[in-house]
Design a protein around this nucleic acid. Structure first.
Length: 421
RNA sequence: GCCGGGAUAGCCAAGUGGUACGGCGACCGUCUCGAAAACGGUUACGCGCAAGCGUGCAGGGGUUCGAAUCCCUUUCCCGGCGCCA
Protein backbone atom coordinates (compact mmCIF):
# COMPACT_ATOMS: atom_id res chain seq x y z
CA UNK A 1 0.00 0.00 0.00
CA UNK A 2 1.21 3.51 -0.81
CA UNK A 3 0.68 6.72 1.14
CA UNK A 4 -2.78 7.96 0.05
CA UNK A 5 -1.59 11.54 0.48
CA UNK A 6 1.23 10.93 -2.00
CA UNK A 7 -1.23 9.51 -4.54
CA UNK A 8 -3.52 12.50 -4.08
CA UNK A 9 -0.84 15.18 -4.14
CA UNK A 10 1.70 13.76 -6.59
CA UNK A 11 -0.12 11.48 -9.04
CA UNK A 12 2.70 12.02 -11.55
CA UNK A 13 5.11 10.06 -9.34
CA UNK A 14 2.65 7.16 -9.32
CA UNK A 15 2.12 7.45 -13.06
CA UNK A 16 5.88 7.28 -13.64
CA UNK A 17 6.16 4.21 -11.43
CA UNK A 18 3.39 2.41 -13.31
CA UNK A 19 5.06 3.23 -16.61
CA UNK A 20 8.46 2.04 -15.40
CA UNK A 21 6.93 -1.22 -14.26
CA UNK A 22 4.76 -1.52 -17.42
CA UNK A 23 1.80 -2.20 -15.17
CA UNK A 24 -1.78 -1.60 -16.22
CA UNK A 25 -3.51 0.11 -13.32
CA UNK A 26 -6.65 2.19 -12.95
CA UNK A 27 -4.98 5.17 -11.31
CA UNK A 28 -7.82 7.53 -12.23
CA UNK A 29 -10.25 5.11 -10.61
CA UNK A 30 -8.14 5.02 -7.48
CA UNK A 31 -7.91 8.80 -7.22
CA UNK A 32 -11.63 9.20 -7.87
CA UNK A 33 -12.67 6.62 -5.30
CA UNK A 34 -10.30 8.17 -2.79
CA UNK A 35 -11.88 11.57 -3.42
CA UNK A 36 -15.36 10.10 -3.07
CA UNK A 37 -14.32 8.26 0.04
CA UNK A 38 -13.13 11.48 1.68
CA UNK A 39 -16.38 13.22 0.81
CA UNK A 40 -18.33 10.43 2.44
CA UNK A 41 -16.23 10.59 5.58
CA UNK A 42 -17.13 14.26 5.91
CA UNK A 43 -20.84 13.57 5.30
CA UNK A 44 -21.15 10.68 7.72
CA UNK A 45 -19.08 12.41 10.37
CA UNK A 46 -21.43 15.36 10.29
CA UNK A 47 -24.42 13.10 10.70
CA UNK A 48 -22.77 11.25 13.55
CA UNK A 49 -22.12 14.56 15.24
CA UNK A 50 -25.80 15.37 14.96
CA UNK A 51 -26.69 11.95 16.32
CA UNK A 52 -24.43 12.44 19.32
CA UNK A 53 -25.98 15.83 20.04
CA UNK A 54 -29.52 14.49 19.92
CA UNK A 55 -28.62 11.49 22.07
CA UNK A 56 -27.19 13.82 24.66
CA UNK A 57 -30.34 15.92 24.57
CA UNK A 58 -32.52 12.87 25.11
CA UNK A 59 -30.55 11.71 28.08
CA UNK A 60 -30.62 15.19 29.68
CA UNK A 61 -34.36 15.58 29.17
CA UNK A 62 -34.99 12.12 30.56
CA UNK A 63 -33.01 12.98 33.66
CA UNK A 64 -35.22 16.02 34.18
CA UNK A 65 -38.31 13.90 33.59
CA UNK A 66 -39.39 15.80 30.46
CA UNK A 67 -41.30 14.29 27.56
CA UNK A 68 -39.00 13.04 24.81
CA UNK A 69 -41.36 11.48 22.27
CA UNK A 70 -40.89 14.12 19.55
CA UNK A 71 -37.14 14.18 19.89
CA UNK A 72 -37.09 10.37 19.78
CA UNK A 73 -38.74 10.61 16.39
CA UNK A 74 -35.98 12.94 15.17
CA UNK A 75 -33.35 10.54 16.46
CA UNK A 76 -34.98 7.72 14.55
CA UNK A 77 -34.73 9.71 11.33
CA UNK A 78 -31.11 10.63 11.88
CA UNK A 79 -30.20 7.01 12.60
CA UNK A 80 -32.02 5.74 9.54
CA UNK A 81 -30.32 8.27 7.30
CA UNK A 82 -26.96 7.42 8.78
CA UNK A 83 -27.42 3.69 8.17
CA UNK A 84 -28.19 4.47 4.55
CA UNK A 85 -25.09 6.60 4.13
CA UNK A 86 -22.91 4.07 5.93
CA UNK A 87 -23.97 1.35 3.54
CA UNK A 88 -22.99 3.50 0.58
CA UNK A 89 -19.74 4.44 2.25
CA UNK A 90 -18.89 0.81 2.85
CA UNK A 91 -19.17 0.08 -0.87
CA UNK A 92 -16.94 3.01 -1.75
CA UNK A 93 -14.35 1.96 0.82
CA UNK A 94 -14.38 -1.53 -0.63
CA UNK A 95 -13.70 -0.44 -4.18
CA UNK A 96 -11.07 2.00 -2.92
CA UNK A 97 -9.15 -0.52 -0.86
CA UNK A 98 -9.34 -3.13 -3.61
CA UNK A 99 -7.40 -0.74 -5.83
CA UNK A 100 -5.21 0.63 -3.04
CA UNK A 101 -4.08 -2.88 -2.10
CA UNK A 102 -3.05 -3.84 -5.62
CA UNK A 103 -1.06 -0.79 -6.66
CA UNK A 104 2.65 -1.74 -6.79
CA UNK A 105 5.37 -0.14 -4.71
CA UNK A 106 7.41 2.89 -5.75
CA UNK A 107 10.64 2.16 -7.60
CA UNK A 108 14.03 3.40 -6.43
CA UNK A 109 15.73 5.71 -8.93
CA UNK A 110 18.72 3.36 -9.31
CA UNK A 111 16.55 0.52 -10.65
CA UNK A 112 16.94 -0.09 -14.41
CA UNK A 113 13.72 0.12 -16.41
CA UNK A 114 12.97 -2.93 -18.51
CA UNK A 115 10.35 -5.54 -19.24
CA UNK A 116 12.23 -8.66 -18.09
CA UNK A 117 15.47 -10.07 -16.73
CA UNK A 118 17.40 -9.05 -19.84
CA UNK A 119 17.54 -5.51 -18.41
CA UNK A 120 19.03 -6.61 -15.11
CA UNK A 121 22.45 -5.15 -14.36
CA UNK A 122 25.43 -7.10 -13.07
CA UNK A 123 26.80 -5.21 -10.06
CA UNK A 124 29.78 -7.41 -9.15
CA UNK A 125 31.21 -10.88 -9.39
CA UNK A 126 33.08 -13.04 -6.89
CA UNK A 127 35.03 -16.28 -7.13
CA UNK A 128 36.48 -18.35 -9.92
CA UNK A 129 34.39 -20.62 -12.05
CA UNK A 130 35.74 -24.14 -11.49
CA UNK A 131 37.50 -25.99 -14.29
CA UNK A 132 37.14 -29.74 -14.64
CA UNK A 133 39.47 -32.13 -16.49
CA UNK A 134 36.74 -34.72 -16.82
CA UNK A 135 33.18 -34.89 -18.12
CA UNK A 136 30.93 -33.37 -15.48
CA UNK A 137 27.41 -34.30 -14.43
CA UNK A 138 24.45 -32.23 -13.32
CA UNK A 139 23.03 -32.55 -9.79
CA UNK A 140 20.39 -35.03 -10.92
CA UNK A 141 22.96 -37.57 -12.12
CA UNK A 142 25.31 -36.95 -9.21
CA UNK A 143 22.61 -37.41 -6.58
CA UNK A 144 21.30 -40.49 -8.34
CA UNK A 145 24.76 -42.10 -8.52
CA UNK A 146 25.40 -41.47 -4.83
CA UNK A 147 21.85 -42.38 -3.74
CA UNK A 148 21.19 -38.92 -2.30
CA UNK A 149 17.81 -38.02 -3.80
CA UNK A 150 14.75 -40.06 -4.80
CA UNK A 151 12.59 -38.09 -7.20
CA UNK A 152 10.54 -40.94 -8.67
CA UNK A 153 9.11 -42.11 -5.37
CA UNK A 154 8.48 -38.49 -4.37
CA UNK A 155 6.48 -38.08 -7.58
CA UNK A 156 4.51 -41.21 -6.73
CA UNK A 157 3.80 -40.06 -3.19
CA UNK A 158 3.38 -36.29 -3.59
CA UNK A 159 3.74 -35.35 -7.26
CA UNK A 160 6.17 -33.51 -9.49
CA UNK A 161 8.60 -31.03 -7.92
CA UNK A 162 8.86 -33.01 -4.67
CA UNK A 163 11.87 -35.00 -3.48
CA UNK A 164 13.14 -37.37 -0.87
CA UNK A 165 16.57 -36.28 0.34
CA UNK A 166 18.61 -39.27 1.44
CA UNK A 167 21.66 -40.21 3.47
CA UNK A 168 24.52 -37.70 3.57
CA UNK A 169 22.51 -35.11 1.63
CA UNK A 170 20.12 -34.94 4.59
CA UNK A 171 23.08 -34.30 6.87
CA UNK A 172 24.51 -31.71 4.49
CA UNK A 173 21.12 -29.96 4.34
CA UNK A 174 20.85 -29.85 8.14
CA UNK A 175 24.46 -28.72 8.44
CA UNK A 176 23.87 -25.82 6.06
CA UNK A 177 20.91 -24.71 8.16
CA UNK A 178 22.89 -25.05 11.36
CA UNK A 179 25.82 -23.14 9.92
CA UNK A 180 23.55 -20.41 8.51
CA UNK A 181 21.88 -19.86 11.87
CA UNK A 182 25.23 -19.68 13.66
CA UNK A 183 26.43 -17.25 11.00
CA UNK A 184 23.53 -14.83 11.56
CA UNK A 185 23.50 -15.29 15.34
CA UNK A 186 27.11 -14.05 15.38
CA UNK A 187 25.89 -10.93 13.60
CA UNK A 188 23.34 -10.41 16.37
CA UNK A 189 20.24 -11.38 14.46
CA UNK A 190 17.45 -12.79 16.65
CA UNK A 191 16.70 -16.34 15.59
CA UNK A 192 13.07 -17.03 14.76
CA UNK A 193 11.24 -20.22 13.91
CA UNK A 194 7.80 -18.96 12.81
CA UNK A 195 4.43 -20.61 12.30
CA UNK A 196 4.42 -22.45 8.97
CA UNK A 197 0.76 -21.56 8.40
CA UNK A 198 -0.71 -18.10 8.89
CA UNK A 199 -4.17 -16.57 8.50
CA UNK A 200 -5.47 -14.60 5.52
CA UNK A 201 -5.15 -11.19 7.12
CA UNK A 202 -1.47 -11.75 7.89
CA UNK A 203 -0.75 -13.21 4.47
CA UNK A 204 -2.38 -10.25 2.74
CA UNK A 205 -0.03 -7.92 4.56
CA UNK A 206 3.05 -9.46 3.05
CA UNK A 207 1.81 -10.76 -0.31
CA UNK A 208 0.07 -8.89 -3.10
CA UNK A 209 -3.29 -10.37 -4.11
CA UNK A 210 -2.20 -11.59 -7.57
CA UNK A 211 0.49 -13.77 -6.04
CA UNK A 212 -1.92 -15.72 -3.87
CA UNK A 213 -3.15 -17.96 -6.68
CA UNK A 214 0.29 -18.45 -8.21
CA UNK A 215 2.32 -19.09 -5.09
CA UNK A 216 0.39 -19.78 -1.90
CA UNK A 217 -1.13 -23.07 -0.74
CA UNK A 218 -4.41 -22.77 1.13
CA UNK A 219 -5.45 -25.16 3.86
CA UNK A 220 -8.95 -26.43 3.16
CA UNK A 221 -11.76 -25.46 5.54
CA UNK A 222 -9.42 -23.31 7.64
CA UNK A 223 -8.40 -19.67 7.58
CA UNK A 224 -4.80 -20.80 7.09
CA UNK A 225 -2.21 -20.51 4.34
CA UNK A 226 1.15 -22.30 4.09
CA UNK A 227 3.95 -19.75 4.20
CA UNK A 228 5.88 -19.32 0.96
CA UNK A 229 8.80 -18.05 3.04
CA UNK A 230 9.32 -17.12 6.68
CA UNK A 231 9.22 -13.52 5.42
CA UNK A 232 5.44 -13.81 5.35
CA UNK A 233 5.23 -14.85 8.98
CA UNK A 234 7.88 -12.41 10.16
CA UNK A 235 6.41 -9.38 8.39
CA UNK A 236 3.10 -10.01 10.14
CA UNK A 237 4.77 -10.66 13.48
CA UNK A 238 4.59 -7.02 14.59
CA UNK A 239 1.36 -6.12 12.79
CA UNK A 240 -0.77 -3.51 14.56
CA UNK A 241 2.09 -2.69 16.88
CA UNK A 242 3.86 0.54 17.74
CA UNK A 243 7.55 -0.19 18.21
CA UNK A 244 9.81 2.01 20.30
CA UNK A 245 12.28 3.86 18.08
CA UNK A 246 15.20 2.85 20.29
CA UNK A 247 14.52 -0.84 19.51
CA UNK A 248 15.11 -0.32 15.76
CA UNK A 249 16.48 -1.86 13.69
CA UNK A 250 15.04 -5.29 14.53
CA UNK A 251 17.07 -7.92 12.68
CA UNK A 252 15.54 -11.38 12.50
CA UNK A 253 16.86 -14.64 11.11
CA UNK A 254 13.85 -16.77 10.26
CA UNK A 255 14.24 -20.47 9.58
CA UNK A 256 11.41 -22.50 8.11
CA UNK A 257 10.32 -24.74 5.31
CA UNK A 258 8.81 -22.82 2.40
CA UNK A 259 5.83 -24.00 0.37
CA UNK A 260 5.23 -22.77 -3.16
CA UNK A 261 2.77 -23.72 -5.86
CA UNK A 262 5.10 -22.66 -8.69
CA UNK A 263 1.94 -22.35 -10.75
CA UNK A 264 3.51 -19.93 -13.22
CA UNK A 265 6.63 -22.03 -13.82
CA UNK A 266 5.36 -24.80 -16.09
CA UNK A 267 8.18 -26.48 -17.92
CA UNK A 268 10.98 -24.52 -16.26
CA UNK A 269 13.58 -26.49 -14.28
CA UNK A 270 11.26 -29.44 -14.46
CA UNK A 271 13.73 -31.98 -13.14
CA UNK A 272 15.79 -32.19 -9.99
CA UNK A 273 15.60 -30.15 -6.83
CA UNK A 274 16.29 -26.68 -8.22
CA UNK A 275 12.65 -25.57 -8.41
CA UNK A 276 10.47 -27.44 -5.93
CA UNK A 277 7.25 -27.06 -3.96
CA UNK A 278 8.99 -27.35 -0.62
CA UNK A 279 12.43 -26.32 0.62
CA UNK A 280 14.17 -25.10 3.73
CA UNK A 281 15.26 -21.50 3.98
CA UNK A 282 16.91 -19.06 6.33
CA UNK A 283 15.69 -15.55 5.73
CA UNK A 284 16.99 -12.20 6.93
CA UNK A 285 14.17 -9.84 7.84
CA UNK A 286 14.74 -6.29 9.09
CA UNK A 287 12.39 -3.68 10.51
CA UNK A 288 14.18 -0.38 10.02
CA UNK A 289 13.82 3.36 10.49
CA UNK A 290 12.90 4.89 7.11
CA UNK A 291 16.09 6.94 6.92
CA UNK A 292 18.26 3.83 7.51
CA UNK A 293 16.59 1.37 5.16
CA UNK A 294 18.88 1.87 2.15
CA UNK A 295 21.93 1.29 4.34
CA UNK A 296 20.28 -1.80 5.79
CA UNK A 297 19.58 -3.02 2.27
CA UNK A 298 23.28 -2.83 1.34
CA UNK A 299 24.20 -4.48 4.64
CA UNK A 300 21.87 -7.40 4.00
CA UNK A 301 23.25 -8.13 0.56
CA UNK A 302 26.80 -8.01 1.89
CA UNK A 303 25.90 -10.40 4.72
CA UNK A 304 24.61 -12.83 2.09
CA UNK A 305 27.73 -12.32 -0.04
CA UNK A 306 30.02 -12.98 2.92
CA UNK A 307 28.09 -16.18 3.54
CA UNK A 308 28.65 -17.48 0.01
CA UNK A 309 32.29 -16.47 0.10
CA UNK A 310 32.67 -18.59 3.20
CA UNK A 311 31.07 -21.48 1.32
CA UNK A 312 33.42 -20.83 -1.62
CA UNK A 313 30.57 -20.60 -4.12
CA UNK A 314 31.26 -18.29 -7.10
CA UNK A 315 28.45 -15.78 -7.60
CA UNK A 316 27.42 -12.53 -9.16
CA UNK A 317 25.16 -9.82 -7.77
CA UNK A 318 22.42 -8.58 -10.07
CA UNK A 319 20.31 -5.45 -9.76
CA UNK A 320 16.85 -6.44 -10.98
CA UNK A 321 15.05 -4.34 -13.55
CA UNK A 322 11.51 -3.04 -13.02
CA UNK A 323 10.14 -5.91 -15.11
CA UNK A 324 11.84 -8.66 -13.11
CA UNK A 325 11.21 -7.21 -9.66
CA UNK A 326 8.28 -8.05 -7.38
CA UNK A 327 5.46 -5.53 -6.94
CA UNK A 328 6.09 -5.21 -3.21
CA UNK A 329 9.75 -4.33 -3.59
CA UNK A 330 11.25 -0.95 -4.35
CA UNK A 331 14.68 -2.33 -5.20
CA UNK A 332 15.91 -5.90 -5.38
CA UNK A 333 19.35 -7.47 -5.63
CA UNK A 334 19.60 -11.10 -6.61
CA UNK A 335 22.63 -13.24 -6.00
CA UNK A 336 23.18 -15.82 -8.70
CA UNK A 337 25.50 -18.73 -7.98
CA UNK A 338 27.55 -20.47 -10.59
CA UNK A 339 26.21 -23.98 -11.15
CA UNK A 340 28.64 -26.04 -13.20
CA UNK A 341 26.16 -28.70 -14.26
CA UNK A 342 24.05 -26.04 -15.91
CA UNK A 343 27.00 -23.96 -17.03
CA UNK A 344 25.17 -20.84 -15.80
CA UNK A 345 24.60 -18.46 -12.95
CA UNK A 346 21.29 -19.28 -11.24
CA UNK A 347 19.28 -17.34 -8.67
CA UNK A 348 19.90 -18.24 -5.02
CA UNK A 349 19.22 -15.01 -3.10
CA UNK A 350 16.71 -12.19 -3.42
CA UNK A 351 17.28 -9.09 -1.29
CA UNK A 352 14.58 -6.39 -1.27
CA UNK A 353 13.75 -3.10 0.38
CA UNK A 354 9.96 -2.80 0.62
CA UNK A 355 10.01 0.70 2.16
CA UNK A 356 6.79 1.28 4.12
CA UNK A 357 4.67 -0.74 1.66
CA UNK A 358 4.25 -3.83 3.86
CA UNK A 359 4.28 -1.76 7.05
CA UNK A 360 1.26 0.22 5.84
CA UNK A 361 -0.69 -2.93 5.06
CA UNK A 362 0.22 -4.46 8.40
CA UNK A 363 0.08 -1.23 10.43
CA UNK A 364 3.58 -1.54 11.83
CA UNK A 365 4.62 1.82 13.22
CA UNK A 366 7.25 3.25 15.52
CA UNK A 367 7.92 6.39 17.48
CA UNK A 368 10.75 7.73 19.57
CA UNK A 369 8.76 9.74 22.09
CA UNK A 370 5.29 8.89 23.33
CA UNK A 371 3.93 12.34 22.62
CA UNK A 372 5.13 12.24 19.01
CA UNK A 373 3.13 11.00 16.05
CA UNK A 374 3.72 7.43 14.97
CA UNK A 375 5.47 6.69 11.66
CA UNK A 376 5.42 3.64 9.45
CA UNK A 377 8.72 1.82 9.52
CA UNK A 378 10.46 0.12 6.61
CA UNK A 379 10.69 -3.63 6.04
CA UNK A 380 13.45 -5.47 4.21
CA UNK A 381 13.97 -9.10 3.42
CA UNK A 382 16.76 -11.19 2.00
CA UNK A 383 17.45 -14.84 1.60
CA UNK A 384 20.44 -16.09 3.49
CA UNK A 385 20.15 -19.63 2.15
CA UNK A 386 17.49 -21.65 0.38
CA UNK A 387 19.10 -25.00 0.94
CA UNK A 388 17.98 -27.03 -2.08
CA UNK A 389 19.59 -24.60 -4.52
CA UNK A 390 22.82 -24.59 -2.54
CA UNK A 391 22.80 -28.39 -2.52
CA UNK A 392 22.62 -28.19 -6.31
CA UNK A 393 25.54 -25.73 -6.44
CA UNK A 394 27.66 -27.75 -4.01
CA UNK A 395 27.00 -31.03 -5.83
CA UNK A 396 27.71 -29.60 -9.28
CA UNK A 397 30.69 -27.39 -8.40
CA UNK A 398 32.23 -29.78 -5.90
CA UNK A 399 32.06 -32.98 -7.90
CA UNK A 400 35.26 -35.01 -8.14
CA UNK A 401 36.61 -37.21 -10.90
CA UNK A 402 35.69 -40.35 -8.96
CA UNK A 403 32.08 -39.20 -8.59
CA UNK A 404 32.06 -37.78 -5.07
CA UNK A 405 31.19 -34.33 -3.67
CA UNK A 406 33.56 -32.06 -1.77
CA UNK A 407 32.12 -30.58 1.42
CA UNK A 408 33.01 -26.87 1.95
CA UNK A 409 35.56 -26.27 4.73
CA UNK A 410 33.20 -24.30 6.99
CA UNK A 411 30.64 -27.12 6.86
CA UNK A 412 32.99 -30.00 7.63
CA UNK A 413 32.94 -29.45 11.40
CA UNK A 414 29.13 -29.66 11.28
CA UNK A 415 29.44 -33.11 9.65
CA UNK A 416 31.90 -34.73 12.00
CA UNK A 417 34.86 -33.44 9.94
CA UNK A 418 33.68 -35.38 6.91
CA UNK A 419 35.38 -33.97 3.80
CA UNK A 420 33.51 -35.72 1.00
CA UNK A 421 30.23 -37.39 0.23
C1' G B 1 -13.15 -31.93 22.26
C1' C B 2 -16.24 -30.63 26.90
C1' C B 3 -17.36 -27.28 31.22
C1' G B 4 -16.39 -22.61 33.56
C1' G B 5 -14.04 -17.58 33.69
C1' G B 6 -12.07 -13.69 30.67
C1' A B 7 -10.46 -9.87 26.47
C1' U B 8 -11.46 -1.91 27.88
C1' A B 9 -5.87 2.93 25.47
C1' G B 10 1.93 1.41 26.02
C1' C B 11 0.84 -1.21 31.04
C1' C B 12 -2.75 -1.77 35.21
C1' A B 13 -7.82 -1.03 35.70
C1' A B 14 -13.35 1.05 36.95
C1' G B 15 -17.64 1.03 34.40
C1' U B 16 -25.08 -3.95 34.02
C1' G B 17 -28.58 0.86 28.48
C1' G B 18 -27.62 7.71 28.24
C1' U B 19 -20.57 12.14 26.73
C1' A B 20 -15.00 5.68 28.27
C1' C B 21 -13.60 6.83 36.06
C1' G B 22 -8.94 6.48 37.78
C1' G B 23 -3.76 4.96 38.38
C1' C B 24 1.31 3.74 36.47
C1' G B 25 5.02 4.47 32.90
C1' A B 26 6.95 7.57 28.96
C1' C B 27 7.34 12.39 26.73
C1' C B 28 6.72 17.99 26.66
C1' G B 29 6.21 22.42 29.52
C1' U B 30 6.23 25.60 34.16
C1' C B 31 9.49 26.20 38.40
C1' U B 32 15.20 25.61 39.11
C1' C B 33 22.08 27.23 38.17
C1' G B 34 20.74 22.07 37.15
C1' A B 35 17.95 17.99 38.80
C1' A B 36 14.20 15.80 41.94
C1' A B 37 9.46 16.96 43.81
C1' A B 38 5.09 19.57 42.67
C1' C B 39 1.77 21.47 39.03
C1' G B 40 -0.21 21.67 33.83
C1' G B 41 -0.34 19.14 29.25
C1' U B 42 0.58 15.05 25.70
C1' U B 43 0.70 9.78 25.00
C1' A B 44 -4.67 4.85 18.97
C1' C B 45 -6.81 6.14 14.04
C1' G B 46 -9.47 9.15 10.27
C1' C B 47 -11.31 13.82 7.92
C1' G B 48 -10.19 19.03 7.80
C1' C B 49 -5.93 24.94 5.80
C1' A B 50 -7.71 25.51 10.59
C1' A B 51 -11.12 25.84 14.57
C1' G B 52 -12.82 21.42 15.30
C1' C B 53 -15.45 16.94 14.44
C1' G B 54 -15.78 11.77 14.04
C1' U B 55 -14.19 6.65 14.98
C1' G B 56 -12.00 3.19 18.58
C1' C B 57 -14.03 -1.11 24.75
C1' A B 58 -10.92 -8.67 20.83
C1' G B 59 -13.55 -9.49 15.39
C1' G B 60 -18.41 -9.91 12.92
C1' G B 61 -23.76 -9.53 13.23
C1' G B 62 -28.39 -8.23 15.93
C1' U B 63 -31.94 -5.66 19.53
C1' U B 64 -32.67 -0.21 20.75
C1' C B 65 -34.09 6.63 19.69
C1' G B 66 -29.29 5.34 21.99
C1' A B 67 -24.78 -0.51 23.30
C1' A B 68 -18.28 -1.27 26.51
C1' U B 69 -22.99 -2.70 28.95
C1' C B 70 -28.39 -6.93 26.41
C1' C B 71 -28.65 -11.16 22.51
C1' C B 72 -26.18 -14.37 18.59
C1' U B 73 -21.54 -15.81 16.53
C1' U B 74 -16.08 -16.25 15.61
C1' U B 75 -11.12 -15.87 17.45
C1' C B 76 -7.70 -15.77 21.30
C1' C B 77 -6.19 -16.09 26.70
C1' C B 78 -6.77 -18.40 31.81
C1' G B 79 -8.56 -22.68 35.00
C1' G B 80 -10.49 -27.77 35.20
C1' C B 81 -11.50 -32.46 32.59
C1' G B 82 -10.40 -35.45 28.21
C1' C B 83 -7.02 -36.73 24.17
C1' C B 84 -1.97 -36.56 22.53
C1' A B 85 4.12 -36.26 19.93
Amino acid sequence: MLDPKLIKESPQIIQDMLKARSVEFDLVGLIESDQKRREFIIKTDELRKKKNQVALEISQKKKKGENVSSILEEMKNVSAKLSELELEQENIEKSYSKLALTIPNLVHKSVPVGVDESSNIEIRKWGNIPNFDFKINDHIDISENLDLVDLERAAKVAGARFYYLKNDLVRLNQSLIHYGLDFLAKKEYSLIQPPYMINRESMEGAVIADDFEEVIYKVEEEDLYMIGTSEHAMAAMHSNEIIEGKDLPLRYAGVSPCFRKEAGAHGRDQKGIFRVHQFDKIEQFVFSRPEDSWNEHEKMISVAEEFYQSLEIPYRVMLLSTGDMGKVSSKTYDIEAWMSGQNAYREIVSCSNCLDYQARRLKIRFRDKTNEDTQYLHTLNSTLIATTRILVALMENGQTKDGHIKIPHVIQSYMGNQKEI
